[in-house]
Lab assay of single mutants.
Amino acid sequence: NKASVVANQLIPINTALTLIMMKAEVVTPMGIPAEEIPKLVGMQVNRAVPLGTTLMPDKVKNYE
């Protein structure tokens, strides 16, 4: 099972992601793969992401 990116804290809307905000966890359904964490640093979320929520591609601005 592959790990996904999960919010390590509440991430407010329009916040630029940092390493400390994210952790890798095996979750269902799968979100953004954990190996993409370095790519996500500096990207902004387009909505608030509660603690423990899986980061889905549609929650990150300009994620492809």
Rank of each mutant, 00 (worst) to 15 (best):
T15Q: 07
N8V: 11
P33F: 06
A48M: 14
K2S: 12
N1C: 15
M56A: 06
K2C: 15
T28N: 12
Q44M: 13
L40E: 00
K23M: 08
I11F: 04
M43D: 00
T18R: 09
R47F: 11
M22S: 01
Q9V: 13
N14R: 05
V5L: 04
T54K: 03
N8Y: 07
A48T: 15
A7T: 06
I32P: 01
T54W: 04
V6P: 01
E35I: 13
V60I: 14
K61C: 11
L40K: 02
P12K: 08
T28L: 12
I37W: 05
M22C: 07
N46C: 14
L51M: 15
V6L: 06
G31Q: 05
V60D: 00
L51P: 14
V49S: 02
R47I: 15
Y63I: 03
T18H: 03
A34E: 05
P33T: 05
V49T: 06
A48L: 12
L55F: 07
Q44P: 01
I37R: 01
I37H: 00
V49Q: 06
I13M: 13
K61L: 11
V26W: 12
A34I: 04
V27W: 06
M22Y: 06
V41F: 00
L55N: 00
E35C: 15
N14W: 15
P12I: 07
N14Q: 02
V6C: 07
E36L: 11
G52R: 02
M30Y: 12
A3S: 09
P12S: 07
P57W: 15
E36K: 12
L19T: 08
T18Y: 03
L17W: 03
A3N: 05
M30D: 06
N14A: 07
E36C: 14
M43L: 11
A7M: 04
M43Q: 03
Q9I: 11
G31N: 02
T54P: 07
I13W: 07
T18F: 06
N8Q: 11
A7I: 05
N1T: 14
V6Q: 00
T53V: 11
G42L: 05
V49H: 08
P50K: 08
S4P: 02
I32A: 02
V5P: 02
N8G: 10
M22E: 03
M30F: 12
P12E: 09
V5E: 00
L10E: 12
K61I: 15
A16T: 13
V60R: 02
G52A: 02
M30Q: 12
R47M: 15
N8M: 09
V6E: 00
P29G: 03
N1G: 14
A7D: 01
L10A: 12
P33K: 07
P33I: 04
V27M: 06
M43K: 11
G52N: 09
L19W: 11
A48S: 12
S4R: 03
L40R: 02
K59F: 15
P12N: 08
Y63H: 02
V26F: 13
M30N: 11
K59G: 15
N1M: 15
V27H: 02
K61A: 10
I20H: 12
E36M: 14
I11P: 02
I20M: 14
E36Q: 11
K39P: 02
T18E: 10
P29M: 06
E64M: 14
M56N: 05
L40A: 02
T53Y: 10
V6H: 01
V26M: 12
D58M: 05
K2T: 12
A7F: 03
D58G: 09
T53H: 13
P38N: 10
I32L: 04
V60G: 00
T15M: 08
I20F: 12
K39S: 12
V45H: 00
V27C: 08
K23C: 09
L51K: 15
A7R: 01
M21H: 07
T28K: 11
P50F: 08
P57F: 06
V60T: 00
L40Q: 01
Y63S: 00
P38W: 10
G42H: 02
N46T: 14
M21D: 02
D58H: 11
N8D: 07
L40W: 01
P38S: 10
A7H: 03
N62M: 09
L10D: 15
E64L: 15
G31S: 04
T53W: 09
Q44I: 14
L19I: 10
M43F: 10
L17D: 01
V26C: 12
K61F: 10
L51W: 11
M21A: 03
N62Q: 09
V26T: 10
V41S: 00
A48G: 06
R47Y: 12
M22K: 00
N62L: 08
R47N: 11
V45L: 08
M56L: 08
V49C: 09
Q9A: 09
N14L: 09
V41A: 01
L19C: 13
I13C: 14
A3P: 12
P57C: 06
R47H: 13
M30I: 11
D58L: 05
L55S: 02
N8W: 07
T54C: 07
V41G: 00
L10H: 15
L51Q: 15
Q44K: 11
L40N: 01
V26K: 10
M56Q: 09
P38F: 10
P38T: 10
L55W: 03
E64H: 14
L40Y: 02
I11G: 00
V5I: 14
V60P: 02
G42Q: 03
A24S: 12
E36N: 10
N8F: 08
T28G: 02
P29E: 04
G52D: 05
L19F: 12
M43P: 00
K39D: 11
M56V: 06
I20L: 13
I11N: 04
M30G: 09
Q44S: 10
M56H: 10
I13K: 14
T54Y: 05
I20R: 14
R47S: 15
V41N: 00
I13D: 08
L51Y: 15
P33N: 08
L51G: 09
M56F: 12
E35Q: 11
P38G: 09
P38V: 08
L19Q: 07
N46I: 14
A16N: 11
A3G: 10
I37C: 08
K39C: 15
N1V: 14
P29R: 03
K59P: 01
T54H: 01
A24P: 10
N14V: 06
V6S: 03
K61R: 13
E25R: 13
P12Y: 08
V6R: 01
N1A: 14
A48Y: 09
Q9S: 07
I20Q: 13
T15E: 06
G31C: 06
E35K: 11
M56S: 14
L17G: 01
N62C: 13
L17H: 00
V45S: 03
N1S: 13
L40M: 04
V27I: 05
N14T: 05
I13A: 15
K23N: 07
K59I: 15
M43N: 01
K2I: 13
I20T: 12
I11E: 00
